[in-house]
Simulated assay, not measured.
Amino acid sequence: MAGQAQYEELARQLSAVGAVKRDLGRILPQDCSAGSAGVLALLGRHGDLRMSALSELLAVDMSVTSRHAAHLADRGWVERSPDPADKRSRILHLTPEGRTMLAELSRRSTELLAERLDDWTDAEIGRLIGLLTRLRASFGDCRTIAHRPPLPPAPPPPVPVSEQAPTTRTPAQAT
């Protein structure tokens, strides 16, 4: 099992992954935020989704999902249609323009990764993919499990009356 120093270094390295994400964010088209790109990617991977399912996959509030959906719909990348099972809900699906944008996003990210990792071997990239996949699996479905702080220590068990120190009573308490 890894020691504390290794876990601390791992935490530092994982926080540095933010730099990679920022670089990937810089290559997005001006009218496509990282959140919008995430929605397009999920729709591309999962197909048509109800707004509630999309919100759960994104691990964000429904209002955030609704803003992303409106942004994408305004650009013609997704369509929102009533859910036949629940007319109050909407189903999102990619339009042909949305599929074109998703392909462009994929091309851009693939090119950036290929450029930045050009001195890596195929085996190293494969190991990284395997380790990141395993890391995600170790954390499970982070969308539905809220982080809970550790419980406070349990109070000590009560001391049986027979083991308690004798108390002295005043004459008034004795009666």
Rank of each mutant, 00 (worst) to 15 (best):
T65S: 14
R88L: 11
T170S: 12
D83L: 09
M101I: 02
P82T: 14
R107G: 07
Q164L: 15
E111R: 15
T168V: 10
W77C: 00
R88E: 09
W77R: 00
P150K: 06
T144S: 12
P149E: 10
E111K: 14
A137K: 13
T168S: 12
L102D: 00
S109R: 15
A114M: 09
P84H: 06
G126I: 03
I125C: 13
A114K: 08
A103N: 03
T168L: 13
S106R: 12
S89C: 11
E104M: 09
S81A: 14
W120Y: 15
F139W: 07
S89V: 11
P155Y: 07
A146H: 09
A85K: 13
Q164T: 09
A114G: 08
R99V: 04
P84K: 11
I125M: 14
S138F: 10
G126R: 14
L58E: 02
H93A: 12
R99G: 05
R108D: 01
M101N: 00
D118A: 10
T133F: 07
S106Y: 09
H93K: 11
S109V: 13
W77M: 05
A154E: 08
A85M: 12
V159W: 05
A73Y: 01
H147I: 08
P84C: 10
H71I: 06
P155Q: 08
R108K: 13
R80H: 07
A103D: 11
A103E: 02
E79I: 04
S106C: 06
G140T: 08
E124P: 03
P156R: 10
R107E: 04
D141T: 09
P166H: 04
E104R: 12
P156C: 03
S63Q: 12
R169N: 03
R75G: 10
P152G: 07
R90A: 15
R67T: 03
T170Q: 12
A59Y: 02
A146K: 13
R127K: 06
R143M: 01
E104F: 05
A69N: 01
D74P: 00
P166T: 01
A146D: 08
R67Q: 10
P82W: 13
R80D: 10
R108Q: 09
P160F: 07
E124V: 02
T170K: 12
T121G: 06
A165Y: 06
E124A: 12
P166Q: 03
W120C: 13
P153E: 06
T168I: 13
L131V: 10
R127I: 09
D74Q: 08
T168F: 08
Q164C: 13
C142T: 15
W120G: 01
G130M: 07
L94V: 05
V78Q: 05
L151H: 04
L128T: 06
I145C: 04
D74G: 00
T65F: 00
D118Y: 05
P166V: 06
G126M: 09
R116K: 15
E79V: 08
V64M: 05
R107T: 08
W120D: 12
D119Y: 03
R136V: 01
T170E: 11
S63D: 07
L92D: 04
W120M: 14
A85T: 11
H71A: 15
T170A: 07
D122Q: 14
D122K: 13
R134N: 00
T65W: 02
A103M: 02
R107C: 01
D83E: 06
A73H: 02
P157E: 14
I91Q: 06
T110G: 10
E79A: 05
A85C: 03
L135H: 04
S109K: 15
R90I: 04
E97N: 02
